[in-house]
Amino acid sequence: MSDRPLIEIRDLSKVYSTPEGEVVALDHIDLNVHKGEIYGVIGMSGAGKSTLIRCINRLDTPNTGRILYHGQDILTMGKADLLQLRRKVSMIFQQFNLLMQRTVGENVRYPLEIAGVKRRQADERVIELLKIVGLEDRVNAYPAQLSGGQRQRVAIARALASDPEVLLSDEATSALDPMTTQAILSLLQDINRRLGITIILITHEMAVIRQICDRVTILDGGRIAEEGTVDEVFMHTKSEAGRRLFGAAPQDPQDEPAGPALRLVFDGSSVDRPVIATLVKEHGIMVNILSADMKQIGGKTYGQMLIRTPEDEGTKLAVLRFLKEENIPVKEVNIQ
């Protein structure tokens, strides 16, 4: 196997002309997505992430740059090749976009129909696909009879029908409640692992990135603010845009006392409860908070907190274990 990335985006730019003037949606984007990974693109609304993902299956056309898929430039492809590409690069959407006059089964069968698969063969495949998403008993229901989470499951089954190599997810969980979001993300992760499908997802929610992505790009104003593995970007946020997204304070301000410290990251995925108070009350461990900058967004906590590392090794391990149980990422840092 060559280690060439599955998707290579090179110097991609897109400018929209609006009556108010030109809007730069993508500004010289370069990135690679490797086979089998879950790649996240995060940014505030208007950062260009939607345009970026829509360029990958050419629902949107960039002005300049190249997008290579298996080394082949998709932007110069002819129509027939483009249709084939779209069968290999499926997409799911925030609003699910199901055919409302077709049943669940007929929706999932659609990609097979347009590819000319024989009816009986297609019907068998539809049931297989619905089993993957756990909806085989709703094959004859109409989308209007399903919940949001179920609709997205149908959309995922439909996206898998053409045996894709890549699944593009355009804010697929943004219209769902937190519980359903968790379930859909687990399903995507399962699909990635079991079927080996590469996933590129865009979101404005850090928790989504944290939960399933391997690597992440932060988009800001059409540019890549930073890129790396999720842990790297999380623990050593370099960009202003990244810190804005995590709601974090500027890194290591000067007035913090020097010495070893623990950086706690609140990414909105942990349950909202008083962590430090619990630590004190239930474990009898006193910690010294050096700085904290956190905010509540939609009932979830985002931000960072720096606490002094306990001098006693046993206490330190207890704190680390506690934070792990609470599912709060922690990083040992040394303030200069």
């Binding site: 299956n57 629902l59 483009l82 249709l83 084939q84 590409l85 779209r86 069968r87 499926s90 997409m91 959407f93 609003q95 976009n97 199901l98 055919l99 409302m100 659609y110 990609p111 347009i114 590819a115 959309a155 439909r158 996206a159 053409s162 593009l168």
Partner: peptide, 10 residues
């Protein structure tokens, strides 16, 4: 969105 989804499926 539905038309777009159909386009995205080839």
């Amino acid at each position: 969105g539905v038309i777009e989804a159909a386009q995205s499926m080839g």
